[in-house]
Design a binder for these strands. Structure first.
Lengths: 111, 111
DNA sequence: TCCTTCTATCGTATATCTACGATAAACGAT
DNA sequence: ATCGTTTATCGTAGATATACGATAGAAGGA
């Protein structure tokens, strides 16, 4: 019982929720910022920036890759992570649109 | 073991993550939109809009109230939910700022 | 008063997230 | 070929999230 019903919603809502899920942990926000700031994309230092074990950071990175915000490759002892700016742009556009659509009916105050 | 380390991050990051958590489920995105569209704030119809049980919707509403995006009161058989526009504005501002700060270093492509 | 309606909360079950250590896998250097 | 470095994955444990039915509580109407 209690199967998740995430997928029963409109694709648009699911997409916004995915964006939310991606940034729903401060570690992932920090990782995104770190990757964006490190234009060189050599990103072993992410682990040093965070109060988390290497394996935990790797899990957070995996989530970010699943959502699509981050793309990366590992070549042995080196790594290459970077923001997928296209995906990020898409997500943030639909998110901004959602935020700006909300107050359209902001007519009557209540409560 | 495995205590959450959410709170060990900068307050700024935690706040963005809270916003993310609030919209990390499509049901909550739908609820926010429904409340915003129903300027009258009589919101028993939310349950009818969603493929979820009333108690589940109530839980999602509780999360939105915890984060602060929604405020509401119940007066017996009537309800009054509405967006806290001030909080929403604060959150979305810091979120937009985060999004716009990210590509500042978008100099070198890689991967 | 009793009934209906609406919402919150409780209890419960399952799923997912978060976190760590241990280990594997890939590659450069020796 | 072996070692060291870097990252991913596995195994595991505890914490949250998700979902539902059952029930409680509050208020209006009969």
């Amino acid at each position: 019982m209690a199967v998740s019903k995430r997928e029963e919603f409109d694709q648009e809502l699911v997409q916004i929720a995915e964006m939310g899920r991606a940034i729903a942990h401060p570690a992932r926000v920090a990782i995104l910022r770190a990757i964006a700031a490190k234009q060189g994309c050599v990103c072993g230092e992410i682990v040093d920036l965070l109060p988390l074990a290497q394996s935990t950071v790797s899990q957070h990175l995996k989530i970010l890759k699943e959502v699509g915000l981050v793309k990366g490759e590992v070549e042995g002892p080196r790594s290459c992570y970077c923001i997928d700016w296209e995906i990020l742009g898409k997500y943030s556009a639909s998110f901004k649109q959602f935020l700006e659509m909300l107050p359209e009916h902001k007519i009557s105050e209540c409560c």
